[in-house]
Design a binder for these strands. Structure first.
Length: 641
RNA sequence: GCCCAUGUAGCUCAGUGGUAGAGCACCUCCUUGGUAAGGAGGAGGUCACCGGUUCAAGUCCGGUCAUGGGCUCCA
């Protein structure tokens, strides 16, 4: 059991029924956010040494089998290690087997890891002499006096260490795959091949880890999505364009209904004045995307649209001489919302103005980056833009922060929070960025002191941001909710309001999404619950199973009664055994199965089978069951196995 | 986009150059059952697509497309 699960249990005890509580209390907020940096235990350090040393062993095996292969970086990572190699030879799966075999031979030498300090000049000479130009390049970035080499057997490598005592200790490892990578992560630099593997201190741990990888497959939203009839990606439609099937559409619309309600009620984060809905177009004149800066800063992600008639007749006016066509398909909703704010004169009394829209956007994502529902090309954001005075923005950010926490806590997600600061590609002056970053930092200090982490250079081009990050079944991190400060778009669109002294002023703008995109959140939800949705979201909440022919009509009646009580219920009229019907219902992860046989028909009762709790003996009356369902839906009970 | 791998029935997968297979799902019939797969029969494939080698290609080669694991990028 990880710390995440413990936290989740503690939190569920704390939270009680989410729909009946008021705005979040400080103690609640203190619980859910998981600090990214966790203390390293002795065990972690041991594994770190094992993995790092195994990377060395692998590099030795590779250079043994493929002389002339040059080395990049080879660090330990979560659950394992990798090493980047530069070579003409493309590594195949068969090569991996050979390399692993060679590693097992080499480790038998029980070669000690010997540490040696070396001067910068000597290190440079050494690696240049060996033709290890990448290593040499790395040495150039190091300070003299801190450079160490580690030698094990015939293999030596630039390395800060520490390592295990000798290669004999490296036993429980497995090479998992080969992939492409770039030197220093820069796609303009040398193309390298990365071999990654996993390594542990005992055979049992290795076995368990490989088991967990198998288990993760059971939760994979792409597999469950197909099994449960949630969504598909028809090849003809184009990659990254999800189609919601009936079950998925039911979940999604229920989710949107809830999110809509949270916005227009303003219950979480903004009780003073709720969000107001907007509906804006999917395409805007290219000039609008110039004004917003998207053409200049986001062009690699943008789709352009044009009318074939205009194209055929040579009537297309190239936008700003770029020949881009007249319209851009929206990759973001912000320019539309900004234009709405810009309509008519605004007073300080109108602020803060909070516009939201479940806006569908399209972004050209490079083909290799697409990933089920977690990374698509067409998706719908629960997007909002808040226009406020500079004085108001800290409390606005706090409100959004609380909103995000509420939504994530409703499902009991483990998540962490990060501050992303300015990068190379940006618009606006440094003063403005200082102000924006300090503003976000002060809110984080207030709400999540010591629990957030900072990623320098990861901001958007228009402002710094706070991101909420959730992990998928394999532990990969995905950004969900986001709060982005923007002092730039208001200026680019020349937004203004009149302050209490009658003076024209520039509003501050906050871009924010709570779930991020419905698609990604949905995918993560499927993985979190292994496809067994909370009752309130389940596409089919109840399935009624008649035992025999004589109860088919009764089963229909029960299902109809449940539907008129507001639940998604269906009757199973198939000519199958009860066992088969139970199995089908459980496989479909339906929260409640109702079994009706001769006994129930006679007495006008039902027998309830719960996905999580088995037979509910205390519920025999339909009224009672309806009450039970209603309570569970209202409380948004979120259980998982 | 880059590296490696994969693509055979709706799904999961066998099939190593000689006329396309299984299980589940689907359809029909029998069975009407008390908490995780009742029985029999049937239908279903341009072996992702295009080209090449060969007397002969699901199988070998090349290209394209899609998917998976990574890199890079992001909600």
């Amino acid at each position: 059991m990880g710390p995440g699960l413990l936290l989740r249990q503690a939190r569920q005890q704390l939270l009680g029924c989410p729909e009946t509580r008021g705005p979040p209390r400080a103690q609640e907020r203190a619980v859910p956010i998981i600090p990214k940096q966790q203390e390293q235990t002795e065990k972690d350090l041991l594994l770190w040494r094992i993995r790092h040393s195994t990377a060395h062993l692998m590099a030795q095996a590779v250079q043994d089998l493929f002389p002339g292969t040059r080395l990049g970086f080879g660090p330990p990572v979560r659950n394992g290690f990798y090493y980047d190699f530069e070579t003409e030879h493309p590594f195949s799966d068969a090569d991996l087997k050979r390399i692993e075999k060679r590693m097992r031979e080499l480790r038998k030498a029980r070669a000690p890891f010997l540490r040696r300090e070396i001067t910068r000049a000597d290190a440079l000479a050494l690696f240049r002499g060996q033709g290890e130009h990448l290593k040499a390049e790395h040495v150039e970035t190091l300070e003299d006096g801190t450079i160490t080499l580690y030698q094990s057997g015939s293999f030596q490598d630039l390395c800060a260490g520490p390592h295990v005592e000798h290669t004999g200790e490296l036993q429980h490892f497995k090479l998992l795959g080969v992939s492409g990578s770039y030197w220093r992560g820069d796609e303009h630099r040398e193309r390298l091949q990365r071999i990654h593997g996993t390594a542990w201190s005992t055979k049992q741990e290795l076995k368990e880890h490989l088991g967990r990888l198998q288990e993760a497959k059971r939760r994979d939203h792409r597999i469950l999505g197909r099994q449960l009839g949630l969504f598909e990606f028809p090849e003809l439609a184009g990659p990254g364009l999800p189609f919601y099937l009936p079950n998925g559409a039911l979940v999604m619309e229920e989710m949107k209904r809830w999110m809509w309600q949270l916005h227009v009620s303003g219950a979480y984060g903004h009780p003073d004045k709720p969000y107001e809905p907007l509906l804006t177009p999917h395409i805007l004149r290219t000039e609008a995307w110039h004004t917003s800066g998207h053409i200049q800063n986001y062009r690699e992600n943008m789709y352009m649209v044009y009318s074939l008639d205009e194209l055929d007749h040579g009537l297309l006016k190239g936008a700003a001489g770029e020949g881009l066509g007249n319209y851009g398909l929206k990759p973001m909703n912000c320019p539309g919302h900004v234009m709405v704010f810009g309509l008519g004169k605004k007073s300080y009394r109108d602020l803060p103005t909070r516009y939201f829209e479940f806006g569908t956007v399209y972004r050209y994502e490079r083909s290799g980056t697409l990933h089920g529902m977690l990374r698509v090309r067409g998706f719908t954001q629960d997007d909002a833009h808040i226009f406020c005075t500079p004085e108001q923005y800290p409390s606005e950010v706090e409100g959004v922060f609380d909103f995000c926490c509420h939504v994530l806590d409703t499902f009991g997600f483990d998540y962490h929070v990060g501050l992303k600061t300015r990068g190379e590609k940006r618009i606006g002056s440094d003063d403005i960025w200082d102000m924006a970053e300090d503003g976000l930092r002060s809110v984080l200090e207030k709400r999540a002191a010591g629990k957030y982490y900072v990623q320098e250079g990861d901001a958007t081009f228009y402002g710094p941001k706070v991101d909420f990050v959730i992990k998928d079944s394999l532990g990969r991190e995905w950004q969900g909710g986001t709060i982005q400060l923007d002092f730039n778009l208001p200026r680019r669109f020349d937004l203004g309001y009149i302050d209490s002294h009658g003076k024209p002023c520039r509003p501050v703008m906050i871009h924010r999404a709570i779930q991020g995109s419905f698609e990604r959140f949905f995918g993560l939800l499927v993985e979190e619950f292994a496809g067994a949705f909370p009752l309130w979201l389940a596409p089919v909440q109840v399935r009624v199973l008649p035992i025999g022919l004589d109860q088919r009509e009764y089963a229909q009646q029960v299902a109809t009664a449940l539907r008129s009580a507001g639940f998604r219920a269906q009757a199973d009229g198939s000519a199958e055994t009860l066992n088969k019907k139970i199995r089908s219902g459980k496989t479909a992860k339906i929260p409640y199965l109702v079994v009706v046989g001769a006994r129930e028909l006679e007495q006008g009762t039902i027998t309830v089978e719960s996905y999580f709790d088995g037979k509910l003996r205390q519920i025999t009356a339909l009224d009672h069951f309806v009450e039970h369902l209603a309570k569970e839906v209202a409380a948004k009970v979120a259980r998982r196995r």
